Amino acid sequence: MWWSLDERVERTVVLNGADAGEVVGMVGKIGRKILEEPDEPKYRQLRLDSKALSTKVLGKPGGRELLTYLGFRNAPGALTFEADLDHLRRVVAWCEQPPALERPQVELAVRLPRGTTVRAAFRKTETVRDVLEFARRYYATGDLVLQTAAPKETLDDALTLEGLAPRSAVVVAKVGALEAAEEAMDQARREGLAREQRERREMDDAERKRRRAALARKEAEARARKDALRHFECDREETHDRVERERRLRGAADRRTSDPGMNE
């Protein structure tokens, strides 16, 4: 073991590189205020909307882990101190005189079974087993497997031999979870294919109905035009006959007017 305080704290704080001392020093000041005035409520609660806290501690790798180890716990909109003062004194002493934190040789972004991702530093001589043990101690339980392109079977190979240095993203999954995930993905693909086929059939049915409706409208319009033309022809013939009758009547009337003898 190469950590002097807490594995999770040091594996994450060291990722700050040259700024690690500032993060540790800021947390040490927070703890020192509680030690000096342990009954002062304002020192025992940290507001999450504090810009200084967010930028100088919570926004830095390991900042939240160090506050948690110091004794702060989540509360609505804040972090509340709930640890005993003896533990606090030990952690504050470490923060005020931290050992030299060596720069990380291997930086891993470890995706955990619950879906969250934690960044942590490892030495290049550490092994796949060390990564799994770290995940098991702090974030997951049960039998675990490390996955990059494929599950790692050589647990005692150094991280450099596994091609994970200097930076890599890995997945820690429970044994059997990968197979279950693959089966779930296959099932999702099958359901997606069935849904796609069903939607295609529905679209084809809708298209056939649309075409039948369009054909019916076209036939109805043709019948309407034919009926309109027939009515027009009938109206034209009737109009022609009426005009002819009126013309003959006017002709007869004109002849009687021009020949008075026709009226005797």
Rank of each mutant, 00 (worst) to 15 (best):
S4V: 12
R8E: 13
E10W: 04
E10P: 09
R11A: 11
T12G: 07
L15I: 05
N16L: 06
G17K: 00
A18T: 10
A20Q: 09
V23P: 10
G25Q: 12
M26F: 14
K29R: 15
I34D: 03
E37V: 04
E40M: 11
K42R: 15
K42I: 08
Q45E: 14
L46D: 06
L46T: 13
K51D: 14
G59D: 06
P61W: 05
G63Q: 07
L67Y: 11
T68H: 12
Y69S: 00
L70F: 04
N74M: 09
L79V: 01
E82P: 02
L88Y: 01
R89Y: 03
Q97G: 12
R103T: 12
Q105R: 09
V110K: 03
P113N: 06
A120H: 10
A121Y: 02
F122Q: 10
K124N: 12
E126S: 07
T127F: 11
V128S: 14
V131W: 03
R137Q: 08
A140Q: 02
V145T: 15
V145H: 07
L146E: 07
A149W: 11
D157H: 13
D157E: 14
A158S: 10
G163P: 05
A165W: 01
P166C: 03
V170H: 03
A173Q: 13
V175N: 01
V175F: 03
V175D: 08
A181W: 12
E182H: 05
M185D: 11
D186I: 05
A188L: 14
R189I: 05
R190H: 08
Q197L: 15
R198Y: 10
R201F: 10
E202P: 05
D204W: 07
D204L: 14
E207H: 08
R210I: 00
R211W: 04
L215Q: 13
A216S: 07
R217F: 03
A222C: 00
A222I: 07
A222W: 05
R223P: 02
R223V: 08
R225E: 15
R230Y: 07
F232V: 02
E246T: 05
E246Y: 02
R247E: 02
P260D: 00
G261F: 02
